[in-house]
Design a protein around this nucleic acid. Structure first.
Lengths: 350, 350
DNA sequence: TTAAGAAATGGTAGCGCTACCAAGCCACAC
DNA sequence: GTGTGGCTTGGTAGCGCTACCATTTCTTAA
C-alpha cells in the first residue's frame, strides 16, 4: 500500500521543461492507494469503497488535481468531445442550432469543438480529417453533401455522425433537418392561395448555399404547376442582411413594378424590405406582399407582422445532440432520420 | 531501415476492440523509414530530406493516415486548442465575439472549444478546471470576475490567458474589452446634451450580468453630476429580446408619463421599443427619445434610425485571438491590455 | 466452519506520439 | 589523412492515464 512512495521522487523523469503537473500518481501517494484506484474513484466511484473514496477526494482537493483528459483519452481511445461543423458563424440560423447542441451536450458532459467551412467542401474535408485526430465521441456536420473522402472516412469510422439542417436519403449515419424543397413550396402555395400571381423569389448566396437553392426550387415548382410565371428571381451573392434585403426589395420593385408578392429567402432579407417599405410609405401587403423564412423573433415585431415559414432551429440542435447522445449511451436510437418540420406562420404581411 | 517490419505484426497488442487505426508506425513501415522520421516529415518538413518526404507523403496518402492528435498532445504537452468561455450563447454579442475569435484562430490552425457558463461563476470554475485537462494552448474567458480558484489556477498555469469584454486592473494575464462605465456615461452625456432631463435606464439581467450593471452605474453617475433625477430604472430578469424591450417601453411610459428619453441597455431592447412605438404611432424622438447600446445592424434600418453606442464586437474577438497568438508565437506581445473602444452613433432617435 | 462467489484493490502493459540524445554521413579545411 | 561541424536519421524512453487480468478481502450460504 505504501510501496509506491519510494520510486516516486526519482529524478530524470518529467520533461516538458519541468511543468510538473499534479498527476494521478501524486494523488495516489497522498491517499495511500494505487493510481488505478484513484482513476476508478474519479470515473466509476461506485466501484471504490467509501473509505478510500473519501481519502482520495481529500487528496484531490488538497493537491488541486485536475485529470489530464488527453492522457485519459489516449488510454481509453476517445474523449468526450463533439466537433460541430457548420458553414458559417455569421448566419444566425447556425448559431441557434449550435446553441441547442451546446446546451444539450454540455449537460451530458461533452464539450463542443467548433469548426466552420465557409461553404467550402475542401475546407470541410480538411476540418473533418483534423478533428477526427482527436478521437471525438461523435461528429455533427451540416448538410448531406460532402467530399467522397469525408463520406468514406466517416462511414468507416464506427462512431455516431449526425448530418443536420437538411433531410434526405443516403446520409452517412443519422440525419435531422427540414425538407428545404417543401419549405419553399409551402410559402409559394400560401402566396398563390392568397391570390397573388406575380411573385418573385429573392435570395442570397444561392451559388454556394445549395439549401437556399433547394428552397427556390420548391417555390419554382409550385408556381410552374400553377401555370404562373415562375422564374422571377433576384439574388445577390453577399451574405443576407437587412441591407441586402432592402436592396433586393428596391431592385425588384424597379425591375418589375407589376409584382404583387415577394418571397424572401429568409426573414433577415424580408425584414430589411419591410423596414424600407415603412420608411418609404409603401404599404404591405396592399402595395406588395412579403413572405419570409425562419421565424426570427423580429418578424413578429415588425409592422406589418411578417408572414413566414418558421423552423425550430434551437430545437433542431437539441435533437441532433440527443440523437448522438442516445447512440453514445447505447440506447440504440431507432430514428436514424428525423424531420424537425416547419410551420407556416400566417401574419399580416401577406 | 527494414528492421521495424518484423516486430510489427506481433499479436496481443491493440486493445480498444480492434479499431486498428492507421498509426505513424504503419506509415513508417510503408515508407521504409523510422516512425520518428514520419513525425518530423509531418511536423517539421524542412528537417527531412526531399527524398524521404516524398516517400512519406505517398505512404500517408495511400494509407489514409490521420495523425492522432491526442497522442501527439500527450507526448508534447499540449494541443492546438483554445477554449473560449462565455456566459451565454443566446446573446448576440458573445456570438459575434466568438466569430471573430474562431475565424482568427482557425486561420492559424487552432481549434475553438466552446463553453458557456450561464453567468454562473461556479459553472465557470468547473468548466475551467475541466478544459485545462486538455492542456490547451491558451484560454479566453469573459470578464474580469472569476472564482479565486479559477484565478489562482490560471495565474500559475503558465500559458496565455485573455479576459475579454471588460477592461480593468488586476487581470489574470491579458485583457481586451471596453470600459463599461464609460459606455453608459457616453450615452447619458449625449442625452443630457440633447436637452433631455427626465431620463430612465431600462435593462435586463442586471442581477447576474454585472457588466450591464456597470453601464447603468456610468449612466447614473453622469445624471447625478448633472443634478438630474438619476435613479429611474426599469428592469426585467429575462434575457433581452425585442419583446422585453417592448414591455419595458410600455411600463416606463405608464409609470412615468413625463419621461423624455429612454436609455436602453442594448439595441435589442431599444429596437423592440421603436417597433412598438411605430405600431402605436408614438413619435420618436418627438414624443420620447430612445438610445441604445451595441450598434446592431438592425439599428440603422429602423425608423427612426437608432442612436446607439457601438462596440466593434467581431473585432474584439479578433483582437483577443491575436493577442493570444502573438504570445503563443513568442512575439512577446507588449500590450497586455487593449481598449477596443466604443463610438457614439448619433442618428435620428434622439 | 468452510467453500464459493462477489466485491474491492493492485500490477502490468500499453494507447500513439514526440523529446532527447546518439549515431551516421557528408563536405570542407588543415 | 584527420578533424570539425552541419545535416539527417534512428533508438529509447516516456507523456499520464486506463484496459485487462490477477490478487486479495469480504459476504453469504451450506
Amino acid at each position: 500500500m505504501t510501496i509506491a512512495t519510494e520510486k516516486s521522487d526519482t529524478p530524470g523523469r518529467r520533461r516538458h521543461r519541468g511543468e510538473h503537473r499534479v498527476t494521478i500518481e501524486d494523488v495516489a501517494r497522498q491517499a495511500g492507494v494505487a493510481p488505478i484506484t484513484v482513476s476508478r474513484a474519479l470515473n466509476t466511484p461506485d466501484k471504490v469503497s467509501l473509505k478510500f473514496r473519501k481519502r482520495i477526494d481529500l487528496a484531490v482537493e488538497t493537491l488541486g488535481y485536475v485529470p489530464n483528459l488527453i492522457a485519459g483519452g489516449l488510454a481509453s481511445a476517445g474523449i468526450r468531445m463533439i466537433p460541430v461543423i457548420v458553414p458559417s458563424l455569421s448566419i444566425l440560423t447556425y448559431i441557434e442550432v449550435i446553441h441547442g447542441i451546446q446546451q444539450t451536450l454540455e449537460a451530458s458532459g461533452y464539450q463542443v469543438l467548433l469548426g466552420s467551412t465557409d461553404f467550402n467542401l475542401e475546407r470541410e474535408t480538411a476540418l473533418v480529417d483534423s478533428v477526427l485526430g482527436y478521437s471525438p465521441s461523435g461528429v455533427i456536420l451540416t448538410g448531406l453533401k460532402h467530399s467522397d473522402r469525408t463520406i468514406r472516412r466517416l462511414q468507416s469510422w464506427g462512431r455516431p455522425v449526425v448530418e443536420m439542417m437538411e433531410l434526405g436519403e443516403g446520409g452517412i449515419d443519422m440525419n435531422v433537418g427540414v425538407d428545404n424543397t417543401q419549405v419553399g413550396a409551402t410559402m409559394a402555395r400560401h402566396l398563390l392561395e392568397r391570390g397573388y400571381r406575380r411573385i418573385a423569389y429573392l435570395g442570397t448566396g444561392m451559388t454556394h448555399d445549395y439549401r437556399a437553392m433547394q428552397r427556390y426550387e420548391g417555390h419554382h415548382q409550385i408556381l410552374r404547376e400553377a401555370g404562373v410565371e415562375s422564374e422571377r428571381l433576384f439574388q445577390h451573392d453577399e451574405p443576407s442582411s437587412y441591407d441586402i434585403g432592402r436592396q433586393l426589395f428596391l431592385e425588384a420593385r424597379e425591375a418589375c413594378p407589376e409584382l404583387e408578392a415577394l418571397h424572401f429567402a429568409n426573414d433577415n432579407l424580408a425584414a430589411g424590405a419591410i423596414l424600407e417599405a415603412n420608411r418609404r410609405g409603401i404599404r404591405v401587403p396592399e402595395d406588395i406582399a412579403i413572405g419570409g423564412y425562419l421565424g426570427l423573433s423580429l418578424s413578429e415585431h415588425l409592422t406589418p407582422r411578417l408572414t413566414t415559414v418558421a423552423v425550430p432551429r434551437f430545437e433542431m440542435g437539441v435533437a441532433a445532440a440527443r440523437l448522438l447522445l442516445m447512440r453514445l449511451e447505447e440506447q440504440a436510437s431507432i430514428a436514424t432520420q428525423l424531420d424537425i418540420g416547419h410551420q407556416l406562420m400566417v401574419r399580416e404581411s401577406t
